[in-house]
């Protein structure tokens, strides 16, 4: 049986960590990775959404935004956006993409150098997952992790100087890093994203 080339997904994300997650997810379900558009936050994505929807007639798109505090739940937030079309998958991370990362409790604990008991069990219920990740890193046994991820007193920022590159390192590491399926076991919003991604990918391959 001749196999058709895998269609490439285009992606739209809020930042560099989100980009790494989306690439990993696409790889994970066996989809090809096309252009990934890294925007600066959600407002830029929401304004450009009609363009992505229109472009989805040519190839599949995956758009991931953080829920943040914008609505009580993902469906409520989705109702405020233009309706998606078959070729475009619009997924909402509850409440930030870091929740998906925290879903693999065992590996993130290992990576941060803390005990697994400190990692919250229900990542989708964390109010501020990014802040939680930083707070967890603060307990790290490893000085390099603390210095990279935790902001210095006086820096006035939410994250440390190499937060992004550290988290990306974890997400990209297929051997000892993040396991999307394991994380999906704890995070409902990630599980739904993965399921939808697999479905759209299956349809596209057929």
């Amino acid at each position: 049986m001749a196999t058709r080339p895998t269609p490439h997904f285009s992606g739209v994300v809020e930042g560099i960590v989100d980009e790494a997650v989306v690439r990993r997810l696409l790889d994970h379900v066996g989809a090809g990775v096309g252009d990934i558009h890294v925007k600066n936050g959600k407002p830029q994505i929401v304004t450009s959404l009609p363009g992505f929807i229109a472009a989805a007639k040519y190839s599949p798109w995956l758009v991931v935004v953080d829920l943040d505090g914008d609505a009580p739940c993902a469906p409520a937030f989705l109702r405020t956006l233009p309706a998606a079309v078959p070729g475009l998958l619009l997924r909402v991370a509850v409440r930030e993409i870091e929740a998906w990362i925290l879903g693999d409790r065992e590996r993130i604990a290992e990576f941060l150098g803390i005990s697994i008991g400190h990692i919250p069990r229900d990542p989708d219920s964390i109010a501020d997952p990014k802040e939680t990740l930083v707070a967890l890193a603060r307990r790290s046994r490893r000085k390099d992790i603390r210095e990279d991820i935790v902001p210095r007193i006086g820096s006035g920022r939410r994250v440390g100087p190499a937060y992004g590159s550290r988290v990306i390192e974890f997400v990209r590491d297929t051997a000892d890093g993040w396991r999307p399926d394991r994380a999906a076991g704890d995070s409902v919003s990630l599980a739904r994203c993965l399921a939808a991604l697999r479905a759209i990918h299956r349809r596209a391959v057929k």
């Binding site: 930042g15 902001p151 006086g154 820096s155 006035g156 920022r157 994250v159 190499a162 937060y163």
Partner: peptide, 10 residues
């Protein structure tokens, strides 16, 4: 400058 780990004092 859009790197969000750059301290404001840096």
């Amino acid at each position: 400058l859009r790197d969000d780990g750059i301290g404001l004092d840096e």
